[in-house]
Structures are given as C-alpha cells and as structure tokens.
C-alpha cells in the first residue's frame, strides 16, 4: 500500500481543513490496500506559507488549504478567486486543465481538487452601513482589517486597508480601531460575532482551497492509486457543491441569531459592487500574466 504524508494548511476547526479531512477519509476508505493518506499535522508542523516548498521538495506528499497562502509561487491560482462557476463546470470547460498545468509548471505539483467552490466573500461591519443616493453601500473611508487578498479591492472601494494580525482583530473591532474586515462565508469560526452588526452582500469571489500532491510522487503511483485519488477528488467536489447551500443557510441562520443583518443592496447597486470586486481580481491577473488571463478569464468568469 502507498502511504502519503498529508498536511493541512489550517487548524482542524476550519471548514477548509474539514473538507480536506473528508477527502482523506474518502481516499482511505476507497483505497484500502492501494493507497492511503496519513495526516501528519497542520500549521503547527509546517507554517502554511512554507507548505508549498515542503510539497515541491517532497517533504510532504499531499496538502490541503487555500491557494492564497502560496500565491507568491503560483500566481495563476488567483484566477480561482475571480471564478463564478463551480468546480464541476471548471473541469468540463477546460479551466481546471489550465490550472493543473500552472500547478505543474510552477510547483511541480498535481492539482487534485478545487474543494471550496461555493465559498464566497463578504465584508463584515461593526455598525450598520449607510447607502448613497444610488443605493450603493457606503464603504468609502471605512477602516477595514485587511490582508494581501483584499488590499486592491478595499482600495477600489475607497476603504482604508488596516494591516494587522488575526490576534488583534477582536480588540481592534471592539474598540473601533477598524470598522470591519473581509472574510469568507463562514465568519462565525473566528468568534467575533458579538461585535458585528452587518454582513455586506452580495457575495463575491470564490474560495480558493485546493488539494495538491507532489508531482513526481503522483506520477510514480500505480494507476489504481491514481484512480482512487482522482475519483475521491471528483466525489469530494460534488459533495461540497451539493452541501454548500445547506451549510451557507446554516451559517446565515447563526449570523442572524447573533443579531447580524445580512445587508443586500438593490440589484443595480449589487451588480456594480460585484463588477468592481471581480474586475480588481482580473485586472491584476491581466497585468501580471496577460496570456494566461486571456485564456482562463472567459472560462472561469463567463457572461461578463
């Protein structure tokens, strides 16, 4: 039996890690006697931003986590953020193949699954926002806790990027050092619900969690093992896509129960807000990797 050493980028209570662990379970179940994954740890074993190096060098065999942590070595991965289609659609229309090639050439890695499609991004605020005459949510001038992913978007919104570590988010929100922050759909995980009044919609972007494997290790596996890994990937993506609506609904119920309003502007203003968020991602990618962006944009971000 082939035993693969796996590492998760985030701690076990994180949704992304949980879906990686589901994948591990599926592989270990279907691959009995052929292939199995042994999870040797998470961020306590290898820092998330160094897991790309570990995977490329074969210190670990398989990894699950947001591609954003290694956007500095696979810049193509940022295209996932600007996607409006599901993982299954991306596989069908060839976008996944383009991404897989990028992972191969940049990291020598096999991209196995995009296991977070359906996870979206919102801005969370400690006070109810105001609207301007055109129905846009007024975010200009707001101080938002930021990180690399959000920087250009917040700039485009006219908001102020406040760079700080996660360990300061609570105190900063509580005292009003920041007015809010950007986060994925599952905000309850960070434990600051009590300090929040509003979640600003509409949802934009998509999460970029993926599962990847050391390429040489993958290539050397027997066909049967590869099949197990690939089939589990497809099954995981399908499962996540199917479960996502219920999980989103559950999270929204929890936010509402905690007194957080789910703010949605009128359709026209919503469309402007969405367009701005996506254009930031695609403009950056077009500037950094023009050829690649031209190929993948129509696939991941159609009808625009």
């Amino acid at each position: 039996e082939e035993v693969l050493r796996g590492v998760a980028a985030l701690p076990p209570n994180n949704v992304i890690t949980q879906s990686f662990l589901q994948y591990v379970e599926m592989v270990n179940e279907a691959g009995k006697g052929i292939v199995s994954i042994q999870v040797i740890g998470g961020p306590e074993a290898i820092p998330p931003t160094q897991q790309d190096t570990a995977l490329r060098n074969g210190v670990i065999d398989i990894q699950g986590g947001p591609a954003g942590y290694y956007a500095g070595s696979v810049p193509e991965s940022e295209a996932l953020t600007g996607a409006t289609i599901t993982a299954a659609q991306a596989r069908q229309n060839g976008a996944f193949e383009l991404l897989r090639n990028a992972w191969r050439s940049r990291l020598g890695a096999e991209l196995l699954a995009w296991n977070g499609s359906g996870t979206r991004y919102y801005i969370y605020l400690r006070d109810m926002p105001e609207f301007d005459a055109d129905g846009n949510v007024l975010l200009s001038g707001k101080k938002l806790r930021s990180a690399g992913t959000y920087r250009d978007w917040f700039d485009a919104l006219g908001a102020e990027n406040v760079m700080m570590s996660q360990s300061e988010v609570f105190s900063a929100l509580e005292r009003g050092v920041v007015d809010g922050f950007g986060w994925i759909t599952f905000a309850s995980d960070i434990g600051v619900n009590r300090l929040l009044k509003a979640r600003v919609g509409p949802a934009v972007w998509q999460g970029s969690p993926v599962i990847m494997m050391n390429g040489a290790r993958y290539d050397a596996l027997p066909e049967a093992a590869k099949t197990v890994l690939q089939e589990a990937a497809l099954a995981l993506e399908a499962k996540i896509t199917a479960e996502m609506p219920a999980r989103i609904a559950e999270e929204e119920e929890r936010l509402k129960a905690d007194g957080i309003s789910l703010v949605e502007p009128e359709p026209e203003a919503a469309a402007r807000y969405e367009d701005l968020a996506y254009s930031v991602v695609w403009t950056k990618l077009e500037a950094d990797l023009p050829d690649y962006a031209a190929k993948i944009r129509p696939l991941l971000y159609p009808d625009r």
């Binding site: 701690p11 609570f170 434990g191």
Partner: peptide, 19 residues
C-alpha cells in the same frame, strides 16, 4: 487584552469576548 486568548478563541471557535 490578550493576543494568545484571541488565537485560542479562533482555534477553538469560541466566542473571543467571553473567553
């Protein structure tokens, strides 16, 4: 205030304020 408590709260999905 405690940075470690905030990290602990988010690792355990606990309400940081109550922690």
């Amino acid at each position: 205030p405690s940075g470690l408590a905030v990290v602990l709260g988010s690792l355990a999905s606990l309400d940081v304020g109550r922690l």
